[in-house]
Amino acid sequence: MKIVVTGGAGFLGSRLIAKLLAEGFGPGREVTSIVSLDRVACPVTDARVSSVAGSIDDAADVAQALSQGPDVIYHLAAVLSGQSEAEFDTGLHINVDATRLILEECRKLAKPPRFVFTSSLAVFGGEMPRVVPETMATMPQSSYGCGKAIGELLVSEYARKGFVDGLTCRLPTISVRPGKPNSAASSFVSGILREPLNGEPSECPVPLDTRLWISSPDMAIANLVLAGGIDGAALGLNRVLNLPGITVTPAEMLDSLERLGGAEARGRVALTSDQRIIDIVCSWPGAFDVARPLAMGFAADTDFDGVLKQYMAETAPADAPA
């Protein structure tokens, strides 16, 4: 099978590519080629991987990436929440205009590809029940959420018209991300764990009782692989899924940090208040009814200790004791 991943050089994109190379979509559905479309080359080294170093808002770059006639397209590339709020025009251009450009290129393909669009719980906002049902109307309270909500409608419409076999996956907030902080308003969700474990100070800018919908990187990638290979008939008319996660508060995350990393690590986190972050993150839901995706085989982490252990095992020195 031939795959295209926009944002393939990024954190999730490169992990998704590595997982697809290792496992494919099951017996008889092995991956033969993957094209990464990103501003830099994909870091995954494999003869089956090629990179188009370009931009998703450049028609020539997109056409080059899709030139082999992909079976599955994962559209992960986006301007993140913090930058979208600060740079309104840039956010809409990349998250809306470029998404439509890619969908238009899909119309030219001989066979409609499975098109997996990664959206966000940021499409919700306003007054919400404690557990958001699958039928909840979107009401984004950020530019990022607005762009993603428009993208969802575009994917569903292009799927209705038969131009793509579309599926939107609303991802939980991913934690713990290795590396450096990014421009996402939710960057602190990883930062209050990653930095203290690395001996660095960090800040929690939201109230400790803020309910967050979380997925580990490994679980998010496993669910995205499933999304690429799932039978379209199982999806029905509703081509949008709230992917499973777990509800956790910053207070509970810091409790995990202290249990697994020690009191000294916990002490490196300062409790602050950033109204800009609060206005965005605290408008997001803290829990979803995910009965439908669970019935399809999508899965969630069991607890946050397990999520943090995953990060600690991944980043432990090679000579550390088991």
Rank of each mutant, 00 (worst) to 15 (best):
Y158E: 08
D231G: 07
I150V: 12
Y74K: 08
S14C: 09
E23Y: 11
R239Y: 12
K108S: 11
S142I: 04
R15Q: 13
C169A: 06
A59N: 01
P217Y: 02
L37F: 08
V164D: 07
M312G: 12
R266E: 01
Q310E: 15
V79I: 15
V248E: 14
S183Q: 09
C204M: 04
S120D: 10
L66Y: 10
P317I: 13
I246V: 02
E195A: 08
A263L: 11
R194M: 08
V155I: 11
G147L: 04
A98N: 02
F298E: 01
L224W: 11
D279M: 14
G145W: 05
F11G: 03
L16H: 10
F88G: 00
G13E: 02
E152P: 12
E264H: 13
S183R: 05
T90L: 13
P217C: 09
A234M: 10
S256W: 06
I192Q: 01
I246W: 04
P285M: 02
T138V: 12
S14K: 14
V40M: 14
C42A: 08
T315L: 11
T247M: 12
G162A: 02
L235P: 14
N238M: 08
A65W: 10
D319G: 01
V40Q: 10
S14D: 03
P293G: 12
R177P: 00
P70C: 12
V176E: 09
L254P: 07
L212A: 11
T138N: 07
G126C: 13
I221F: 03
L76E: 04
F298P: 01
E127D: 13
L243D: 00
G91S: 02
L308N: 12
G228A: 15
C169N: 04
R177C: 11
I34M: 09
S33M: 10
T210Y: 14
A185L: 12
T45S: 13
S81D: 06
G191W: 05
K180Y: 12
D209S: 06
D255K: 04
S120A: 05
A41D: 03
A220D: 03
G126D: 12
E314C: 06
I3K: 00
D57H: 05
V31T: 02
D218T: 05
H93A: 13
D165E: 15
L308K: 07
G126W: 11
W213F: 13
W284C: 04
